[in-house]
Computed example of a mutant assay.
Amino acid sequence: MKLIRAIIRPEKVATVLTELNDAGFPAVTKIDVVGRGKQRGIKVGDISYDEIPKNILMVVCENEYKDDVVGVIKRESKTGEKGAFGDGKIFVSDVDEVYTISSGESKL
């Protein structure tokens, strides 16, 4: 299994969640975060904003669906046709074990 974590712009979240659901991936965890990427924040006049609002979406899926999930997130998170700095990052990790808390059941 794979854990896909995507850090994206808050204004893109609703569209990404809708498209993930429509593609058959309704189980998503969303976390509101702040941070900055390599652009080191935003400067407007004399004011610098080091903490930019973002969201992290987390999806766990079977290995064979990783490209589908990543594809939806990439397509729907991009600003304009070419994208822009600050559109976000996607991280993919292996999942070694999964447990359902209520039953104690293991998935792998």
Rank of each mutant, 00 (worst) to 15 (best):
K66H: 10
V16N: 00
E11L: 15
R36H: 14
D46Y: 10
T79R: 05
R75G: 10
K2N: 11
S103H: 11
V34C: 08
L3V: 02
G88R: 03
C61V: 05
C61H: 02
R5H: 11
K54T: 05
V33W: 12
S93T: 08
K78L: 10
Q39P: 13
L57H: 00
T79L: 08
T100I: 15
E105G: 09
S106V: 15
K78G: 04
G71F: 02
C61T: 08
R75I: 09
K74S: 15
T79A: 06
L17I: 00
K30M: 13
E51P: 00
T29R: 09
P26H: 05
I4P: 05
K89E: 05
K43C: 14
I73H: 00
E81A: 12
Y65L: 04
V16S: 01
L20D: 01
V13D: 02
G37V: 06
S102A: 12
L3C: 00
P53C: 06
I47G: 08
E11H: 15
F91M: 08
D50C: 07
V92M: 04
M58H: 07
E105K: 11
D96L: 13
G88C: 02
L57P: 01
A84L: 09
S102R: 12
I47V: 14
D87Y: 04
V69N: 02
E97A: 13
G80E: 05
E11P: 13
Q39H: 15
K66M: 14
A23H: 07
S48P: 09
L57F: 03
E62M: 07
S93D: 08
A84D: 13
E64D: 08
K89V: 06
Y65G: 01
V28Q: 03
V44L: 13
I8C: 03
K43P: 15
D96Y: 12
C61K: 02
R75Y: 14
N55G: 09
Y49E: 06
P26F: 02
E64R: 09
R40T: 12
K107S: 13
E62A: 09
D46P: 04
F85P: 14
I56G: 04
M1D: 06
F91Q: 08
I42D: 11
K43Y: 15
E81C: 09
L17A: 00
S103D: 11
K82C: 09
V33Q: 12
V33R: 10
G88T: 04
K30L: 14
R36F: 15
S93K: 06
K12W: 01
V95A: 03
M1P: 06
G71Y: 02
K38N: 15
S102W: 13
I31L: 13
I8R: 01
K78Y: 04
R40P: 10
E51S: 02
P53A: 06
S48I: 12
G24K: 04
E51L: 07
S93Q: 09
P53Y: 05
V59I: 08
S48G: 11
V44M: 11
I7M: 04
F85S: 12
V34P: 05
V44Y: 11
R5K: 14
I52D: 07
I101V: 15
G41M: 14
D22N: 12
D50G: 09
K30N: 10
V13C: 03
G104M: 14
G45H: 10
R36L: 14
V92W: 06
